[in-house]
Amino acid sequence: MPYFSDADARTIISTTYEKAQGSRAVAAMLYAPEELAVLPPGAVALAFGVNHPVRHAGLVRGERVLDIGCGAGIDTLFAARLVGSDGRVVGLDMTPAMLDRARGHVAEAGADNIELREGLMEALPFPDESFDVIVSNGVLNLSTRKSRALAEMLRVLRPGGRVALGDLVLTDTLPEALMKDPTALAV
């Protein structure tokens, strides 16, 4: 049983990220310098993923990709470079302020194969079988309805489509005092 309602969790996450300041500290931990060198500095500074799922997604030219919880767009931009002009990447995020930042970074990169959309991972605003691949980075762990979000991913993937999810997992039970803290919803 989650300690937080959906509404509580969304409020905590949105209010935190809409005022987040970047530092490159996360990107430097997760990505290679040569990968970061080709991206807008703002997207690099505002990377808040927890791993590098695009590296494991096996993306090829022409594929349709959904990046759930795209934030300021670092993985969306990576994916767009890999699928090329014949492919398409949709970045989805629930926080308008982060989408505004992502729009700026997409424009700065000149990527014309990216679309940005506002929406929730538990109710993806796309028809069935819309995508070949879904990536997500440090986002599923923020949902209070993870199975619902995963079922939505299955729905919007074509048969044979793939997911690559970067996430945080616990190897043991946290003390209850920690689990009741609002920031504990991230793990």
């Binding site: 927890v50 791993n51 590098h52 799922p53 590296r55 494991h56 997604a57 079922a151 299955l154 729905r155 993937l157 074509r158 048969p159 044979g160 489509g161 793939r162 997911v163 690559a164 999810l165 970067g166 996430d167 945080l168 997992v169 616990l170 190897t171 043991d172 946290l174 003390p175 005092a177 920690l178 793990v187």
Partner: peptide, 26 residues
């Protein structure tokens, strides 16, 4: 709150992959 010996491995970052079957219902 957290015993220091748990800091080394209680949280891990992972990448999990999977595939939608060619023919399936959820």
């Amino acid at each position: 709150v957290l015993p220091s010996e748990l800091d080394h491995d209680i949280v891990q970052t992972v990448v999990v992959t999977g595939r939608r079957p060619i023919s399936s219902t959820p």
